[in-house]
Design a protein around this nucleic acid. Structure first.
Lengths: 212, 212, 212, 212
DNA sequence: GATGAATGAGGATTCATTCAT
DNA sequence: AATGAATGAATCCTCATTCAT
């Protein structure tokens, strides 16, 4: 953050940045997998170290505690989710398509990364006291972007005449619920047909349109 | 050896049935609250006993282990949910109203019993190995009832021309998601206006009907 | 013990002496068997009560604690041992035969009552602090009787010219050791030939007599 | 994933072999003493750790459970017994002297290590289910050696004309019994005169030899 | 007298974390 | 920097004993 840090000439053996980064990644990945497989309590730091191929002390060198390690894994997962959704939905599409694409990307992401569903729920259980869950932290960050999309559609008259907040909330609830039920019930979702079904139901509901 | 052996000898202190039932309920209630407040790990059996106003040994007299106590609490909660939804939705209503009423009852139930949302999630985390979660056990039991309701509506042409299973699933996902997001975000849901909003969105989706 | 007790006229419902005695015996017997089968720690008072066909509280009415119950069982066993040995060895036999008969009776007794070997050892382990073990208590009581027998034989020149105490001790060691090794190794001893072998070895040792 | 995985990474604190062995010995010794003093149940692992001057966790690092710790102590004791007897009796002596020396060594060993008598009996009580007690395991291992000694003496006509098995058994019973009675009665045995008495009685019995 | 419901003290074991090497 | 040996806090459950009925 301070610019003076860049002034220091590199003296002595420079840390092997690349190795460090790789280690950090390996530990995080091992942690994610183990936490997802066994739960927080059943996952021992020793096992994570074993999986990452490092000593237990090294894990603590990179992450100060089991808690922090878990939260880092959780945060990393949510970053990946964000990227996946943004990458899919960001390109200049028509607003309505952006919503459809976003929903699909969200569901596909969790289907491809079921581990992260587990982290999500583990975080809620073991870190409830934290003011805000990492999931909802990320959610709120993205809210504004989606708000403008929804508002645009509202102005165009594409959306029904309801508060956009309520509609965004509804979409959130659907995808959140779909993610969990799909994961918990072991169903494989709509893999293949790509969740078009859910998008359709979000858009049009379950009732036949009177005019149809 | 003696012929008296076959004679049961129940001359001692007779069990007080009524007291026993009350105790059992008190322990279950104390457990539900403490588990919901603190989580499974942080809840000590001693604390549950204290809250129930009995000795620790008594808790174990009624429930053979902490695990069983938790699962009993969980089961009890789901029984209550079922009763609440059935009571609300069962009466001879028009099928469409039954769905609306059921959804509302479901959401209101969890709003009135936030503890049970916690038990739900705790069960998933700490008893994942159980073949089926208590929630989905109960869910599947009720599925048939709802299926006939949906099929009736499908025949009448009230529902869109989609597989009823998919529509039921969609409704499940919405209420499941709404229950969690409402609970986790600390929002008070639509209390007062009674979740009419969600029912409306389930029915009609977020898009303006083309013919309107 | 005091003669005044016999003066009291029996007033009110007299306790059912016979039943009481039977119960007491049944409890003691159940205790002996269970302690022998499972050891002291693993034997629960509840199980003893069950086996005796009475309530747990009744066991405590007859014996004030698990400890006392065990010691009573132990004492009872040693009484039986004494009786068995005395009955066999007491009759006016020739002194040397009395020793032989006594040794045989001792070993046969423990072969017929292996439970008591177990109690013996359990007592040592769980009641070590007691000044004297029940076994050695009984042993010392009988010592005098045997001493006179040995001394008589010593005077007659039948025994070797060694301190009689040492010889008595030797016999004790042999039978004590034989009892344990037989019991622990699961061998059935000399059943049938009646331990004549041991008596013979006690009498003559393992070496060929020089004069033979 | 990375090729470095196959490279063991033992760059950390190297284990101090010598210290480890010392600790292991210290824990075993502390355990032996405490078990002998207090019995198995009354001995708490914490106390053993305290006596050994290590943390409780360290005890568990070296021995996976209290049970295993006890059995290790027991086994160690029996190893010492074997060594003591073998060292004393092995040297090329005349066979009869070997027996005498062996008996004396056995009894002296337990007099010098009364703790091990206690372990012996504790093992029987608390680990009865084990197929074979550690004592009899060791005993059987040595049996063959003694058998040849006895058979040699039998051929030479030194022993009486009885089955050698029976005579070995008799000697075992005597020493086993002597060990226990000496220990339990608190007598100090024949310390000083070195158990010559017992050897003499084993050899010649208590009766005066007819030819003498 | 008999019973068994209620009680709570007591202990082995695990595992996150530290820090000497 | 990396390691893993050492540590001890923390917790569920059993079962002897009491005593209300």
């Amino acid at each position: 953050m301070s610019t003076t840090e860049k002034v220091r000439r590199p003296v002595g053996r420079p840390p092997n940045q690349e190795l460090q980064q790789r280690r950090r990644t390996e530990i995080l990945s091992a942690a994610t997998n183990l936490f997802a497989e066994r739960g927080y309590i059943e996952s021992e730091v020793q096992d994570i170290a074993d999986r990452a191929g490092v000593g237990k002390g090294t894990v603590y060198r990179y992450y100060p505690s089991k808690d922090e390690l878990f939260l880092a894994a959780s945060r990393h997962g949510m970053d990946m989710l964000n990227k996946a959704v943004e990458t899919a939905a960001c390109p200049a599409e028509r607003p309505l398509d952006r919503i459809a694409t976003g929903v699909r990307a969200y569901l596909e992401f969790f289907e491809a990364n079921p581990n992260l569903v587990e982290l999500l729920i583990l975080e809620r259980v073991h870190f409830r006291e934290r003011t805000k869950s990492i999931y909802f932290e990320h959610f709120d960050e993205n809210l504004i972007r989606w708000q403008s999309t929804f508002e645009e559609l509202a102005r165009e008259g594409v959306l029904r005449d309801l508060p956009v907040e309520r509609m965004i909330e509804f979409v959130s609830e659907v995808v959140y619920g779909a993610m969990f039920t799909t994961h918990f019930s072991g169903r494989r979702g709509d893999l293949g047909i790509g969740h078009d079904n859910i998008v359709d139901l979000i858009f049009r509901g379950i009732l036949r349109c009177p005019g149809t």
